[in-house]
Computed example of a mutant assay.
Amino acid sequence: MKTKKLFSVWIFLLLFFACSTGSSEELPANAENPPSEEPMYFPPNNNDLWETKSISSLGWDQTKVQDLLTYLENKNTKSFIILQNGKIVMENYFSGHTSVTPWYWASAGKTLTSAVTGIAEQEGFLNINNKVSTYIGTGWTSAPLAKENLITCKNLLTMTSGLDDSLGDDVSPANLLYKADASTRWAYHNVYVKLQDVVASATGQTWSQYFNSRLRDKIGMTGSWIQSGNNSVYWSTTKSMARFGLLALNRGNWNGTQVINSNYVQNAVSTSQNINLAYGYLWWLNGKTSYYLPQTQFQFSGKLIPNAPDDLFCALGKNDQKIYVVPSKKLVVIRMGDAADNINPALSDFDDVLWQKINAVIK
Rank of each mutant, 00 (worst) to 15 (best):
D320S: 12
S183T: 15
L72N: 00
N230R: 08
P35Q: 08
Y135H: 07
K179C: 04
N130G: 02
Q209K: 08
V265R: 02
E25M: 14
F17M: 11
G168N: 09
Y188S: 03
N276Y: 02
G118Q: 10
A18C: 09
M336E: 12
K179V: 01
L316C: 06
S95N: 15
K64N: 13
V361H: 02
L69W: 00
L347W: 14
L15G: 12
G109E: 06
R243Q: 09
L69F: 10
L167A: 07
A187E: 10
N175C: 06
Q299L: 13
A115P: 00
S114T: 12
H189R: 07
S228K: 13
Q227G: 07
Y178D: 00
K53V: 04
W225I: 08
T158I: 01
R214K: 15
P309F: 00
K87F: 07
W355Y: 11
Y93W: 01
G124S: 01
F94L: 02
N76R: 11
N155G: 05
S183D: 15
G223W: 05
T257W: 01
Y71E: 09
K330G: 01
D311W: 00
D352V: 04
A146G: 04
N46S: 15
F17W: 13
W10M: 15
P306W: 00
S208Y: 12
P173A: 11
S270K: 09
K329M: 06
F298I: 12
I88H: 06
A200M: 03
Q273C: 06
P327G: 02
K4I: 14
I128L: 11
Q258T: 11
I358K: 00
A242K: 03
T289S: 15
L282R: 02
A180Y: 06
I219A: 01
D67T: 15
K53P: 02
G139A: 08
F80T: 00
V198I: 12
A315E: 07
A340N: 03
G59N: 12
P306T: 01
H189A: 06
D181L: 09
W140E: 04
S36N: 11
I219Q: 01
F125L: 11
N307C: 03
V326A: 01
P35C: 04
L156R: 04
